[in-house]
Design a binder for these strands. Structure first.
Lengths: 200, 200
DNA sequence: GCTATAGCAATACAAACGACTTGCGAAATG
DNA sequence: CATTTCGCAAGTCGTTTGTATTGCTATAGC
């Protein structure tokens, strides 16, 4: 047998090159040749790891979702054993806003995929699948807040969760357009959470 | 002189053909030939009215913004002389959600432009310019609500306006992905407005 | 009625695209 | 040491892209 290389590691490297291009010029502006050049490899080598462009796009999307999920997990894990629901929600939200360059890149990539997902059935599945889980998680935190008496009992946890997701997403979208900064966006969500958690 | 045709009317027709394609397949999937075919004209004729593809895209964006602004204006005008701030806000929001097919098409087009705006300086200007005006308008309505005693005095009108814009935008984005329906989205914003306007 | 010109069709063209094929070197196995 | 198979480079293919060019037709003005 000839030499073996770590396929997954190579594919990850290529995916990261794709993100850099998608961030700078958009997903549709990323040709296979561009990605190969950005990754510092030949077109032939890229095609050795991805049989088609579509395969590359799907892999890159799954890869970035994994990384984002892991980042949120780490942040929440750092909160300690018994964190307050408000801190959990604010920590999650903080990870969903383009507060630093890396996160901003992630957002630009996510937006690039979002537009494609609108017209591409397969990608739409990927883009949608994370929402119910996130919504359930947020709703659980709201419910926990109600148990602790920090959230009014007449609030619908499922509705509040959806509101929070949509709100953060909208704030983040305008933040990447420089309509307002990510810090201002964070302040706005924080105010929203203040209201939800009875601090007046 | 030879015969003369109404250039603006032809350009508007071409722009509408572009929207139909952008709605179905995205902006990047719309070639000049596709647009010409959709408009029922030849490529040569299309080029007669738009010297370059970029010129066509910019015109189509400005045209759809004009139409959307006029729709909102009509809806608010139909509210009568002294409408309540809550009704004004809900009416505006209703126009910003993809509740019918025409509105959904408008949203898909807007999304297509949004992604392009992230990477295109000129389009970004167009995409951003409408927000401050809308925010000021919403903030004015919140302030009016405070004067009428319907909104708590410690709410920051500017912040509430930004929250509402971002919230509606996020809800609308997920609505076009079919994560939830536009009707559910409307119900969620309505609940948000209930809270803002002291109905508990 | 001649002419200038707007309107428009048809075609050409270079560039770039994704996909595919071929071929060679290297290395681990037998 | 031979052989097999992976890793990869280079080139080619047909298609599609935006733009440019050419030329015909009809009409308004002189």
């Amino acid at each position: 047998m000839p030499k073996r290389v770590d396929h997954e590691e190579r594919r990850a490297r290529i995916a990261e090159a794709l993100w850099r291009i998608a961030c700078a010029r958009g997903l549709d502006g990323a040709s296979l040749r561009d990605v190969a050049a950005e990754a510092g490899i030949s077109l032939g080598q890229l095609q050795h790891y991805f049989a088609s462009k579509d395969e590359m796009l799907v892999f890159a999307l799954e890869h970035i979702s994994d990384l984002a999920a892991r980042r949120v997990g780490e942040r929440l894990g750092a909160l300690g054993g018994e964190p307050s629901p408000r801190d959990v929600l604010l920590g999650s939200v903080r990870e969903m806003l383009p507060l630093d360059d890396r996160s901003r890149t992630g957002h630009l990539v996510q937006i690039a995929y979002f537009v494609r997902a609108v017209h591409d059935e397969r990608l739409r599945g990927h883009a949608k699948e994370g929402v119910p889980g996130l919504r359930a998680f947020f709703a659980g935190q709201v419910r926990e807040g109600q148990l602790r008496g920090e959230v009014a009992g007449d609030r619908d946890p499922e509705a509040e969760a959806a509101l929070l997701i949509a709100l953060v997403d909208g704030l983040a979208s305008y933040a990447v357009l420089d309509v307002w900064t990510a810090e201002e966006a964070l302040g706005l969500v924080s105010g929203h959470l203040d209201r939800l958690f009875g601090v007046r």
